[in-house]
Write a protein that binds this DNA or RNA. Structure first.
Lengths: 166, 166
DNA sequence: TCACAATCATTAGTGTACTAATTATTAGCT
DNA sequence: AGCTAATAATTAGTACACTAATGATTGTGA
């Protein structure tokens, strides 16, 4: 049970030089994916107590945002908007239906598709949701400029990811 | 079943002006949390096929990164480094143990704590892992400068989240 | 038209990720 | 020393999120 560190290796192949500075490619703190995962979990954690009064989880909140923009829409359409698999949405939508925020029924035009539609209760929930973004911004203590710039940069990453899918 | 749009409301309280431009606070595409979630899922998805030959999921890969930096270390220590609950790590570590990459045994100094230690196999895996960051960078088609800058900005968000926890 | 491929949603199975409750051990106080 | 609080890990329960397989419907080409 002896202490072992990567730095014990004199010729560690994970060390590269960037601008004359040695960078460890396998160091946790240098991983963009780690920063992304922690930031996403952290921000979703900020939403948790704020969404709690509405009875929504964060993914459910995103579905409601999508439906407030257009309703009814199909599961596949929601999946395209939210970048989620239908298999993920299926049980999630059932929970929102159980909450009374939406209805699920087969499309008349195409019996394969399922139309997801807001109920009056679901539409009314939007009024309460108006207070959420300000609460989050306030809680984070960041400016709208910082947040907007971050969102744009994340958009570039999302584009980079999608460019490689075919 | 009538089409309904938020924009039907003439006096929509979710529309604010920033730099004279009208911004919808509840529009999906304006949410930083949505961009974060999609980017994180997307980037983790990029890792999936790259990690597959090593038999690791992305969270498992992060655990290995942490152990390559220091081993042995306790579950709690790993949780602090990875920002994960012990309840999340517990089953994850059992899977890595089943894979033969680490051992789990009670600390002799403190019988409450569990020492997680790399096996020779787990230590050897690091050689294969050296190829992962270059593959990811190549697949994303982004420069190291862009990625480094993004990582730093994500660090600011993580700090903002943690500032509010007590 | 009619076999067959494509599409849509669901289910099954696995793996995070959280909170709350539980068990075991240690530390601290009097 | 002994009671109590605190700490470490696990378990239980819920909810995503993915891939693969399934069932139902629709579209298409010979």
């Amino acid at each position: 049970m002896q202490e072992q560190r990567a730095s014990d290796d004199r010729t560690d192949a994970s060390i590269v030089e960037i601008d004359g500075e040695p960078i460890d490619l396998l160091a946790l703190e240098n991983q963009v994916c780690f920063a992304l995962a922690v930031a996403a979990r952290g921000v979703i954690g900020v939403y948790r107590p704020i969404l709690e009064p509405l009875g929504l989880t964060h993914p459910q909140y995103l579905v409601m945002l999508a439906l407030w923009q257009r309703s009814p829409r199909t599961v596949r359409d929601l999946g395209a908007a939210l970048q989620l698999e239908p298999a993920t949405l299926s049980p999630l939508l059932k929970r929102l239906e159980a909450q009374g925020y939406l209805t699920r029924q087969r499309s008349t035009k195409d019996e394969r598709a399922l139309d997801v539609e807001l109920t009056p209760s679901g539409r009314a929930l939007r009024e309460q949701a108006l207070g959420i973004p300000p609460q989050v911004v306030d809680r984070l203590g960041m400016t709208l400029e910082e947040l907007g710039s971050l969102r744009d940069r994340l958009g570039e990453v999302i584009d980079a990811v999608q460019r490689g899918e075919r």
